[in-house]
Amino acid sequence: MSPRSVHWFKFSSPSTFYPVAGKISTVSAVIAVVLIAVGLYMSFFVAPTDYKQGEGYRIIFVHVPASWMSMFIYVVMAGWAAIGLVFNTRLSAMMAQALAPTGAMFAFLSLWTGSFWGKPMWGTWWVWDARITAELILLFLYLGYMALRSSIDDPRRGDRASAILLLVGVVNIPIIYYSVQWWNTLHQGATIKMGEQSSMDETMLITMLVMTFAFWAYAIAVTMARVRTVILERERTTTWVRELAMGER
C-alpha cells in the first residue's frame, strides 16, 4: 500500500474527519458570506440593465447558479454512493446524506426563482419549459432519496439502499432530461432562454461566476456542518464520541 492511500483511508474514518470537517466548514462559511455579499452587490448595482428584459433579468444571478448546483450536487452524491458501495466506507454514505438537503434546497430555489422570473417575462407563474420541468423532476428525485433514507431504521441498510437509488437516479437523469426536451419541442411549448441573451455582457458573466462560487462555498460549509451532526448521531455509541461529549461538558 502506498503512503498516499494510507493517508486517504485515514481521513475516511469518521473520527478523524470530524475535526477536519469542522475547520473546512468554518473557512467555507467565511468565504461564502464574503462572496455572496460581493455577488449580490454586483448583481444589483454593477451588472448593466438588460436591453431586452429590463431589471427583472437580475434574478438569473441566483437562478442559474442554483440550477447548476442542484444538478452538480446530485452527481456528487452519486459519486459518494458508488465509493460507499465499492469500498464499504461509512463516511461516504454520511456525505451523501449530508449533501441531500442542500441539493434539494438548490433545486427548489431554482424553481422558485424561475417562477418569479416567469411572472414578469411571460405573465404566468409556471411555464412547462423543458429545463424547468427537468428541474422539477430532479427535485422529486431528491425528495425520493430523502424519503427512502429516513424510512429505513437500520443505518447500514439505509446507506446501501439509498446508494443504489442514487446510482439508478444518476443513470436516469440524462434519459429524463432528453425525453423532456423531446416532449417540449414536440408540443412547441414555451422555451425560456435564461442567461443566453444575444450579448452576454462580461460583467454579467463575472457576476454569475462569483455567485456560483459563493453557492459552492455555502454548499460546502453547510454540508460539512451537517456531516458533523450525522457523524455524532451515527457514532454515538463509540468511545471517541463519548470522550468528546465528556470533554465539552
Binding site: D153, D154, P155, R156, R236, T237
Partner: peptide
C-alpha cells in the same frame, strides 16, 4: 473458517 468476525444490528454490536 470464521476470522475476527464482528456483526452489528442497528446500533448494537
Amino acid at each position: 473458517e470464521v476470522d475476527k468476525l464482528c456483526c452489528v444490528r442497528g446500533d448494537r454490536e
